Amino acid sequence: MAGYGQTKKKGPVRTVQISCLQCKAPIFKYRKGGKGALVKCFIERIVEDHTTTVCHCPGCGQEFARETMIRGAPAYKMIGGKVHMK
């Protein structure tokens, strides 16, 4: 079992599609844990990355997240109301 402050090696099995709310362009395919809203994306859990510029939509170019460190792991902190998850 993973120690305190470490994510599990395999990670969650539920994969979600994250797209831009404004232009509907696909952004990520992500292994999400839990059933709540999408607040952060750990970079190691991203399965497919459609972005060309970090944290900016490939379609309309708006910023949808900010780069940060969460519990020692690099992650993207989502800006509310910018992305849609299904």
Score class of each variant (00 low, 15 high):
2 A>F: 01
2 A>L: 02
2 A>E: 05
4 Y>W: 06
5 G>P: 05
6 Q>G: 01
6 Q>W: 02
8 K>Y: 09
9 K>W: 05
10 K>D: 09
11 G>T: 09
12 P>A: 14
13 V>D: 08
13 V>R: 02
15 T>V: 15
15 T>Q: 13
16 V>I: 13
16 V>F: 04
17 Q>Y: 02
17 Q>C: 02
18 I>P: 00
18 I>E: 00
19 S>P: 03
20 C>V: 01
22 Q>F: 09
22 Q>S: 11
23 C>G: 12
23 C>K: 13
23 C>F: 14
23 C>Y: 15
24 K>N: 15
26 P>V: 02
26 P>A: 03
27 I>Y: 00
28 F>G: 14
29 K>P: 00
29 K>D: 11
29 K>M: 11
30 Y>I: 11
31 R>F: 02
31 R>K: 15
32 K>N: 10
33 G>A: 13
33 G>P: 10
34 G>Y: 07
34 G>F: 13
34 G>R: 12
35 K>I: 06
37 A>D: 15
38 L>I: 12
40 K>Y: 06
40 K>T: 04
41 C>P: 00
41 C>G: 00
41 C>A: 15
42 F>G: 06
43 I>C: 12
44 E>R: 14
45 R>G: 08
49 D>N: 15
49 D>W: 03
50 H>Y: 12
50 H>C: 06
50 H>G: 02
51 T>Y: 01
51 T>F: 01
51 T>N: 04
52 T>P: 01
52 T>W: 03
53 T>Q: 11
54 V>I: 07
55 C>R: 01
55 C>E: 04
56 H>S: 09
56 H>Q: 14
57 C>S: 03
59 G>I: 07
60 C>K: 12
61 G>A: 12
61 G>W: 11
62 Q>V: 10
62 Q>F: 10
63 E>T: 04
65 A>I: 11
66 R>L: 14
66 R>N: 14
66 R>D: 11
68 T>M: 09
68 T>S: 15
68 T>A: 14
69 M>R: 11
70 I>H: 06
70 I>Q: 08
70 I>N: 05
71 R>Y: 03
71 R>A: 08
71 R>I: 08
71 R>F: 02
72 G>R: 08
73 A>P: 00
73 A>F: 13
73 A>E: 14
73 A>G: 04
74 P>I: 07
75 A>I: 08
77 K>F: 03
77 K>R: 11
78 M>G: 03
78 M>Y: 07
79 I>T: 03
81 G>C: 05
82 K>G: 01
83 V>M: 10
83 V>C: 09
84 H>A: 06
85 M>Y: 09
86 K>M: 04
